[in-house]
Amino acid sequence: MPAITEVWKVLFKRPFTNRFPAKYAPRSVHGFVRRVQAGKAKIAPPVPTPPNFRGKINYEVDKCIGCGLCIRVCPTKAIVWRTVEVEQGEKKVAKKKVKIFVSRCCFCSQCVDICPKDCLSMSDEFLLANEDKLANELIVL
């Protein structure tokens, strides 16, 4: 029975667990976050993301021509139309742009592939948990 010797060997090994964000769950997550912000506590770093990781979406609104291809391929209907008033010379023109609900996004990056103007890209940000699915940081404009 190989486990008999194995367990004693492992006992003296460093635990495999990655201690993210802290070794033990903090009593209050909010308190922990506040302490981290105040510099009183430190977050144990997460496992680094590899290059070309598919994280939170970035949107460069100025490059967008409003073709709507991303809306057509988005599997989760996370991208919707929105109209933006842009000043063009004297008069204001309504331009079609999009709005992305990150809390609906499934991070497939299909919209990034289809975008003809390359105005969408995936960042490596993945700490997106929030109590409010419509929080400002979860809507990309």
Binding site: K77, V80, F101, I139
Partner: peptide, 12 residues
């Protein structure tokens, strides 16, 4: 449910 996201301010 997805359709409800489009309407309104936040679309909720």
């Amino acid at each position: 449910l997805y359709e409800t996201w489009r309407s309104g301010k936040g679309g909720d």
